[in-house]
Each structure stands twice: as C-alpha cells, then as structure tokens.
Design a protein around this nucleic acid. Structure first.
Lengths: 305, 305
DNA sequence: CATCTGATG
DNA sequence: CATCAGATG
C-alpha cells in the first residue's frame, strides 16, 4: 500500500518572504522567554542567513485554537510552512478561516474517528506533491502524517501516537515507530527530509521537568526514548539539541493541570528532525513560548537553502 | 413500593419573610416584561395579601447555572420555597454554594444516570417530611420528584419525562402520567397540594408560539396535552391560566437554537398546579422573564395561607 | 485541565 | 444551541 495522494485546491500567492531584520541588541540579551519578537538574523555556521522558516504547533483542537486567536501566529511569524497537529477536525467541519489562509496552500488529513488526531500543512510555495500517511492502513486511518515534496527537500509533519494512560496504546506506538522510520528513510534516499511535529516523546532527562517520576509514563518510557534514538541513528538529527546540546528547561508542552505552564513544568515533545546532511544549512530552532492557544507552544525552524 | 425517605441535614434559619412592599404605580404600568422588580402587592380575590412565595426554575444543569449567577435569584426574589429541575448533578458533585444556601433547608434527588434529570428543593421553613419519587422503581431512579410536607399543604416539584426527539420516549411519558397523577391525588386526599416544575407539555395552542408545526413534537402531542387535561379534571388547576385565561405569548422556555428567546418563540412548560380548593388563596403567578441562566426562566407563585 | 463526541433536551 | 459524561491527552 502506497501513501495516498489527494487532489487539493489551493491559493495563488506564492511570495516567499526573505526576512532578516537587523537587531541592535546582542544575541544574549535579545532572547527572553515569553518575549519573542519573531525576528531573527540567525545564520548557518558559515554565516548564511536563513531563508526558510517552518513552524510546527500542536494546536490541541483547531477549532478551540481558532477561538483563542491561534491564527494570529501567521502574521506574527509569517512562516513559509506551517504544520499543525491534533487538529481534531474533519475537513468538512473546518472553519473557512482555517481552510484557506491568504498566501498559503493548505492540506489536511483527519482521523476516521471524529475529533481525534489530525494534521494540517500550510505552505506559501506550492509543493510539487503531497501525500498522506505512509502506506499502513491502520495508522493512515488516524490522520497522522502529511508529506510535502519541495524542490530541495521533503517536509513531513506528524502527530505520533500517544502511548496512553497506563500505556494502553504503547503497542500501537511500538508498531508505529519502525514504520514511520522507514517512511523517513525512504524519502531520505531521494531528497533530504525535514520532519516536524508532536513526537510524543521526551528524548532525554533534560527534555522534561520531572524525568524520575515519568519513567513509566507515556512519553518517557525506555521503549519510546529508544525509538527516537534509533531514528537519529539512521541519519537524522534533533535540530534543537544539535544547536543547544545542554540547554535546560526548554519545553514545548505543559499539561493544563496544576498551572504547569506558569511553573514551566513541561516536556519537550515537539521537534524538528532533519536529515543529517541538512545540518550545514540549519540556522536556528526557536521555541515560541510566548504564543498561547494550546497546551503546546509552537517551534520554529530557520534554514538556509 | 412507598416513596423513599432520606434523612437530610439542614440549616437553622427559619425566618419566614412576609413581604408586601407598597408600590405607587398602578398594576398595569408596573409589570413590564424583562423588567421585573420582584416586588408585588398581589392579594387573593378577597383582598388578602400573599405571605408565601414559591419559585420554580428548570436550571438546565445546576453547575452551569451557578456560573451564570443563577443563585442571585435567591436575593432578588427571596422565595420561601425554591424548586429547581434538571439539576443534572449528583449530590456528591454539588458545589457547596448550591448544597447549602443560607437561610434554607435543602433537599436533592438525582438520576442514577449521571448528568441527567434531577430536582432540588430549598425551603426557609423546615418541612415536616420530605419524600423522593412516588413509589415506581423505574421513574424514581431518574430523580424526578421531591415531595415536601408543610403544615398546610404538600409541595411537590417535578421534572416530567421529555417525550424525546421523534417521540422515542413517549411511552415512558405515557407510563408516567397516570402514576404521577395518582401520587398527587393521594396527597390531595390528605392536604391540599402545590405542584410545580417542568411538566414538559404546553397545554393549549395559546401556550406555545408555534402550535401548528409542533403537534407531532414532544411537548405538544395530543397524548401529552390530554394527560395534562386529565390531571386538571381530577381536582387541580393551572394557576397561571386560572388568573390569566387568555394572556398570550407567555412562555417559560425557549430553545437556545436560533435566538428564540429574543424573538419570544417559546413554550409554557413550567407550571404551578394547585388543588382546586387552594384557588381562593391564590394571589399571583408571575413569569420571571428577566432572569437568565438557563433555557427556561423561573416562575413565581404567590399564595395567602 | 483542556479538547473533542455523542446523548439529551 | 446549550447542558453533561466519557474518551483522550
């Protein structure tokens, strides 16, 4: 079974912004948590300015997120590509303002089960091709993967199965991991890959506030962590850790329960995972903690192509 | 099977207010829909001022109603007895501010099915006795009836079974009607009865905005209307129609759909039904359209005892 | 502590 | 167009 192909109607505007405002302040004092200014002059190691911005956000229900003004992110960040996870919304129920965002081509996939899972992709540039899922009927029915082909790379966005309370769906997750890995490897054999989304795993102890107490909980079991390690070992990198190997308390998810976000008791569950050969083109990976609208915050990737 | 008896813990304050403010304006200009002033100098036909106020309100979810400041009704109206229907809340889940209202003894019954049906009764004066249901296991499990005995009358509050979309539960309703009628007749043999609540029927064409189109819908089928007629024929009166036989557009319920309340496209589903011999003591039956918090508004009965 | 659905009204 | 429960996260 091959990845599904859907025919989509899109929009015309293809202006690819090449932002790069100059800031007076030095890098160190500029980046303050909760005070993102959405400008960046990040460059590759050899000094080339970024010219591609990708944003990934688990919106925890697209319709609720819309009511919380989630769409204002488009103006604030003006990403070239936006990937949303947990849209929890079939295409017929999509509010029009989310279905068509001016200046973007948009693509959606939802779970057969209403109100569950679902991902979306918006792109200023029209992809050469867009596919859905990775050729596994069971997983594909849950609307978890969109793959968009661009001239220089594949962009894959995903919402990885949660292992569930008491790990009731850890089996499904363990079935998913090698299949999704294979999908990425197959793509990587053709073009470099940028994969992003909610991977539902904190890779290492540094990636969550309470590693000790969560070793048997969904998102930090040894099995899930090993799955991520294995993915990296097959030729990919976690772009955030690549850039900031020891940076602590950098999370992208905080449960709503108990005011965890205010206390920064969180997890890093959202990632950009790149084909290793893209590392020289990596400029930055930002965590946009100032943006609200979900129990996750968005992450932003800056690349030079 | 006899009506259940529960032992309840109540509060001390038993001050029975005997309100009767004097108003300058004549009756006609005083009563303006949407501008209730919650004072009344209503009297019986032979000029005796009211000294008992009973309020009945289908709250459509007590917890939601609390958030919409439903409790402020207690200060505005200061009724001697308050009856709430569709509390949709088991006693353990009752927020404390609803469980104990200062100056009132309170009694609750809920359906075995969580979040469904349920009625409550608050009384300044402690009832001599309080019973729940009317001795029918099936109906009693749905938490639809509280009967409180006072020195001079029985107070019964009820949430009558809705016949349902496509009349799927009309059978249940038809089973209910004679049984509930018998309950009232049995009580009436001992002391006069004041029954109130959401009877889930508009009795006559005058009692709903769209009689023609609703003849086959729950709340206005011939069966349900006949049930109400039969109740009245066994020695009871609809106190509102007793006082205002031809008053039109007097509703107590408006579906949330389509802004019906603003357009006053509603139904009169909430009633005070009195033993005929109480009619000489009837002072007024008010419809409190100025009070919000549910898809029903409260109704207020003024009696002289 | 949120998001959904689905039953109920 | 609301309420609530229950699944899910």
């Amino acid at each position: 079974m091959a990845p599904k192909r859907k025919q989509k109607e899109d929009r015309e505007d293809k202006n690819k912004t090449k932002k790069g405002k100059v800031e007076e302040k030095p890098e160190e004092t500029k980046k303050v948590d909760g005070e993102d200014d959405f400008s960046s002059d990040a460059t590759t190691k050899d000094g080339k300015k970024w010219n591609l911005k990708v944003l990934s956000w688990n919106v925890d229900g697209l319709r609720a997120w819309l009511k919380k003004d989630g769409l204002s992110m488009f103006e604030k960040e003006s990403p070239d590509i936006v990937c949303l996870q947990e849209t929890k919304c079939s295409e017929v129920k999509l509010p029009p303002e989310a279905k068509t965002v001016e200046g973007y081509h948009s693509y959606f996939i939802s779970a057969k089960t209403e109100g569950y899972s679902g991902v979306a992709l918006y792109s200023k540039e029209k992809p050469i091709d867009v596919t859905y899922g990775f050729g596994d009927a069971t997983h594909d029915d849950e609307g978890r993967v969109i793959t968009a082909e661009f001239p220089n790379f594949y962009l894959v966005t995903t919402y990885v199965p949660n292992a569930g309370r008491k790990l009731v769906t850890l089996d499904k997750r363990m079935d998913w991991d090698p299949k999704f890995r294979k999908h990425l490897k197959d793509l990587d054999a053709k073009k470099p890959v940028i994969m992003c989304g909610d991977l539902n795993v904190a890779h290492s102890e540094i990636d969550l506030a309470n590693p000790k107490s969560n070793k048997k909980n969904a998102g930090f079991t040894q099995e899930e962590r090993d799955g991520f390690t294995k993915l990296l070992s097959t030729g990919f990198v976690d772009s955030f850790r690549q850039l900031y190997p020891k940076k602590e308390k950098q999370y992208t998810f905080w449960t709503y329960i108990g005011n965890c976000r205010a206390k920064n008791v969180g997890w890093r569950l959202d990632y950009f995972v790149l084909s290793k050969r893209l590392v020289p083109q990596l400029c930055d990976n930002l965590i946009r903690t100032s943006l609200y609208g979900s129990d996750h915050c968005p992450i932003t990737l800056l690349m030079h192509f």
